[in-house]
Design a protein around this nucleic acid. Sequence first.
DNA 1: CAGTGGTCTAGACCACTGG
DNA 2: CAGTGGTCTAGACCACTGG
Lengths: 232, 232
Amino acid sequence: MQAKYIQIKNAITGHIEDGSWLPTEKIPSENELAEQFGVSRMTARRALDELCAAGFLVRSQGLGTFVADRRPMSSMLEIHNIAEEIADRGHAYSCRVAKLNRVSSDKRKAILLSVQEGQEIFHSTLVHFESGIPVQYEDRYVNPVFAPDYGLQDFNVQTPNVYLSSVAPLTEADHIVEAVLPSKAIAKSLKMDHSDPCLKITRRTWSKKGVVSFAYLYHPGDRYRLGSHLNF
Amino acid sequence: MQAKYIQIKNAITGHIEDGSWLPTEKIPSENELAEQFGVSRMTARRALDELCAAGFLVRSQGLGTFVADRRPMSSMLEIHNIAEEIADRGHAYSCRVAKLNRVSSDKRKAILLSVQEGQEIFHSTLVHFESGIPVQYEDRYVNPVFAPDYGLQDFNVQTPNVYLSSVAPLTEADHIVEAVLPSKAIAKSLKMDHSDPCLKITRRTWSKKGVVSFAYLYHPGDRYRLGSHLNF
DNA sequence: CAGTGGTCTAGACCACTGG
DNA sequence: CAGTGGTCTAGACCACTGG
């Protein structure tokens, strides 16, 4: 005898897999599922919670539960999704958008994005906060061919990373990790001392058709580490 | 106001991270935790369920809940071998052994190596050079159970990494990457300025039967970077 | 046997969303 | 406002483990 919550999970993934519930579509509410399956709301919730953790569903308080529009990403990539990482730690995530505009690409940026020198590209800078404390300064350049509406986004709703993944599914990424001293402007944004070290990650991401974006991510050395969950 | 189950999760991971609850150790039962935190059993369960899903705990019906004996592996860094890396770039590799002796393990080292506090362990420090320029300071501790002859090796012939892999085949590794300022001694060994940033990698390696070794690897920020290329 | 985790109920109050 | 998901309670019965 299967547990009831497992039967409900199988029924839901069945609907998703056979296409009767399409990506982004709203699915029945907790109360509706509880009634349909003749279980308590807590049992219906358990099925939804687990499918949500597995990346099949997305839930939003006050709105409902929806079929996820993308498959769960690889765990390697999740290491670099700052908003998710902070939420997973149970801390409050927030961000401040400092810049969002178009710039003309100089030679180096043109090469990195595989565009013509002088072509207009998007430029954004953001500061990401964990429980109100700045933990990442993001300096990003985006190829407008893959994300023509990048300049209109509200990154308080969806981080650049998540938005770009939705418009141009990620197929490849490339990282460089190094230790540097921050510029004065970056030190100020991160509320750290100019003489304290920063962990800098340079990241380029590809979609099937080319380079979507590259970003310089700066983290205060004493507030951010890459790797496993060990603490000493 | 944090949710109660998140407070309980943080309390538990705190005990694990500070070493007061060791791997494979039994932790309080659901009922005990519920009483300690003044919550219902379902709320205590939720904290345990999520930590179990995250790989921190292992549960067994009828037996209890235990601290997982190995941490989730960090797949972000491949095991890299500095000598090979330098040779691959076509440069001359050399190293200088600064220390090679036995020390008594203090509490932190004992926990990291999964040995009894006070047990003798090997300690070595080396500097690795690329074409005569120092690029890595290696500060390593080794469990003598897996490598009883570690103290007799000539690391100019074979790096500690390669020697250890030959006597205790590597099955797992764990990394932390961070940006720090070097101590004066390390700065001097690396011929770098005390105020320039260092990329620090803390690495633990496992063989089938347990933790073989852990090492702190310091690299001058302007002479060393970590890179990776991922395909999804 | 007493204790453990596994499942489940029928309620409750809350924060949030849209209309 | 009614409906949604988010958290939480105080019970219940079960399968399983060790002694």
